[in-house]
Computed example of a mutant assay.
Amino acid sequence: MTTPPTPGHAAPPAVAEELRIAIARLSRRLRTLRPSGPGDEPAPLSLTQFAALAAIERHGSMTPRELADHEKVQPPSMTRVLAHLEERGLVARSPHPTDGRQVRLAATAAGSALLAGERRRKEAWLAQRLRELTPQEREILRRAAPILDKISKA
């Protein structure tokens, strides 16, 4: 027989469910932030294309196979994503330093600028939502951020 949780101390499964739902909603909301309104262009890339470009920028350079493995997609699917990113001038290929059969991918200046704009838009949205919270709520989130990061890397 298990001991019921005391008030204010949710059992781990309940915490897991609450976190899963809250994180999924927040993630979905952030993914939907796209340019809109007067003067804004429609979203230039799909979510998969954005994720691939961000991974390339974050890791410096990668082979197409490394990128496919990182993004957990099949190489043929990644080939289509990369073709679009290259066509847009957002990634560039260069010879692999030790294996002449492979290439390395790197984000171009245009690719990095596009990602920076997306990050600014999302961070501005989050900053506005944080301003709506109490100082105590903001402090809780500040302290929780490294813990959530730790969980995400497990």
Rank of each mutant, 00 (worst) to 15 (best):
S46I: 00
A22N: 09
T32I: 00
P5S: 13
H96T: 04
T32A: 14
L19R: 06
A144T: 11
L47K: 03
P146E: 11
F50E: 15
T98H: 13
A144K: 09
D149E: 13
P12K: 05
P135N: 07
P146M: 11
L90S: 04
P13I: 02
H70Y: 11
T32M: 09
P42F: 04
G100F: 00
Q74G: 03
R104L: 15
L26S: 11
I140Y: 06
Q136E: 15
R93V: 00
L85N: 04
L90Q: 08
R65D: 13
V91W: 02
L53C: 06
R104C: 01
P64N: 05
A127Q: 11
R143H: 12
G37F: 01
A54P: 04
A24G: 12
R119H: 12
T48W: 01
A154S: 06
P64C: 04
S61T: 11
Q102S: 12
A106D: 02
E132R: 14
R101S: 10
M62F: 02
A22R: 15
T108R: 07
Q128F: 06
A14F: 00
R80I: 02
A107R: 04
D69A: 13
V73M: 12
R88F: 06
A43N: 09
R88D: 10
Q49K: 08
A145E: 14
P13M: 03
L133D: 08
A52Y: 01
R101G: 05
L47Y: 06
Q74M: 05
L114C: 01
A113N: 09
M62H: 02
S61E: 15
A124T: 15
E132T: 14
P76R: 10
A106I: 00
P12M: 04
A144W: 11
V15R: 13
G111E: 03
E123I: 04
P4Q: 10
E66D: 14
V15P: 02
I147F: 11
L85C: 08
A116K: 09
A154R: 13
A14Y: 00
R65Q: 14
G37D: 04
R143A: 14
M62A: 09
R80V: 08
L115R: 05
Q74T: 08
R104G: 01
P38V: 10
L67G: 09
T134F: 02
K72R: 15
L90P: 03
P95F: 04
L45V: 03
S94K: 11
K150P: 00
L115C: 07
L47P: 08
A43F: 01
A145N: 07
W125D: 12
E137A: 15
L130E: 11
L115A: 06
A144D: 05
